[in-house]
């Protein structure tokens, strides 16, 4: 599966459009990470646990999007975008979306 954040695939022409594909996941932190974050909130600095968690979740969302694109018969996703929203205390939604296409 070819992925790109640009409007086309470099050096290839798009033969067919399949429309928007997306993948999302809602994750929450476990209590241990929250306690660590509480400590970091006093001293400042990077919350490594959160960085990793969000990155892993984003990869999951991306995998779901790729799965959807594959099921449509696409071989590439163009104009890929990521979005994150804090929906409630301690939980976030990671969302990946793009346009599934077939390139030669």
């Amino acid at each position: 599966m070819l992925l790109s954040t640009t409007e086309g695939i470099p050096g290839r022409t798009i033969k067919r459009f399949f429309g928007v594909v997306s993948g999302s996941t809602v994750r929450s932190k476990h209590i241990g990470r929250d306690i660590m974050a509480g400590i970091k909130n006093i001293f400042g600095g990077e919350l490594t646990g959160y960085t990793e968690l969000l990155q892993e979740s984003r990869e999951d969302a991306l995998a779901r999007m790729i799965q959807e694109a594959e099921s449509l018969g696409a071989n590439a996703v163009v104009n890929l975008r990521f979005a994150t929203s804090s929906i409630t205390q301690g939980a976030a939604e990671l969302f990946a979306y793009g346009t599934a296409v077939q390139v030669e």
Binding site: T5, S28, Y50, F82, S86, T88, Q89, G90
Partner: peptide
């Protein structure tokens, strides 16, 4: 190319602390 930036507030789970845990 086509670099994009997304900013999100990360909140903590505990109810008594409504402060922002950080920013992603």
């Amino acid at each position: 190319v086509n670099l994009r930036l997304e900013t999100t507030r990360v909140t903590r789970a505990s109810k008594n602390n409504r402060a922002t845990a950080g920013v992603e």
